[in-house]
Amino acid sequence: MNAPARDARRSAAGPVLSARDLHTWFELRQWGFLRVGSVRAVDGVNFELQAGEAVAFVGESGCGKSSLARTLLGLHQPTRGEVVFEGRSLGTLNATERKAYLARVGFVQQDPYGALPPFMDVRRILHEPLIVHGVRNRAEREQRAREALEEVRLSPPDDFLSKFPHMLSGGQQQRVVIARALILRPAMIIADEPVSMLDASVRVEILQLLRNIQTEHGLTLAFITHDLSTVRHFAERIFVMYAGRIVEQAEVNELLNHPQHPYTQALLAAISDPDPDNALHLREVPPGEPPSLLKPPAGCRFHPRCNRMIAGTCDRDDPPDFETRNGHLTACWLYR
């Protein structure tokens, strides 16, 4: 899609989902009652997703990206801040409205085998959400289950409806998970590492499938991923997360071609293309490891590993977002 068209869509519709000053902390207790602190999995996150756009949240394990996904789904209560979907804050919804929200947002989990109940066949798995959301007519449910299977290219549906998850390959299982996420005709899909458990040759196929479904139905798609090398093909915007925060955000090509934050730069420099010359030299890797989210460092969370750290600033003050290039936001004091 070209940029003007998307801009027009943005201004017309307004954001579908936004996170405002979102914090999700998990309290840690010793012996079940002594408070020893909080794990700050999501620690001050702000963003807006426009209708019909595909975005990716990228980060290493433990950066809080899965906690963010679960907070967006309403599975974790935010400690502070709010998630706003179609103009309403999730915290203010009553039980019925909450159920309606979950029907509007589909979830694709990381491990397809763990996400599918082993004792249900595919038919039952696909009927289940419809039953929960009040589709009483069995024939209609069956019809929609078949449509959903066709949509994820598991056809003919008759070959799959009576199969159990263990009878399917990993890729097919993940397709069933996607079909289940689509069956309530959601406005948005959140996919938490949808392909990291799959074989490399199947990954591209599943990502393409998600992307096609997204453009066809005008869905909003939020990918959670650690794999920057495929992101370009499946998302329009990228948010880079580090230690519970978004450190950089931009359009995909802008971000990959002009990374600004030292962390993003390090991340991109560590990714190899299959080139035999790689074996000839060592790669530059920032020292150390991501900080404990129990006691994150003061100031910029990346400063202990950063080779461009400004003493007295980066280790004291939280960097705000600076617009470093057109539409490119970077939380780094280098761009003050």
Partner: peptide
């Protein structure tokens, strides 16, 4: 089929 960081075509 190997994704490359700066390649335009989809793997």
């Amino acid at each position: 089929s190997v994704p490359r960081l700066h390649q335009k075509e989809t793997p």
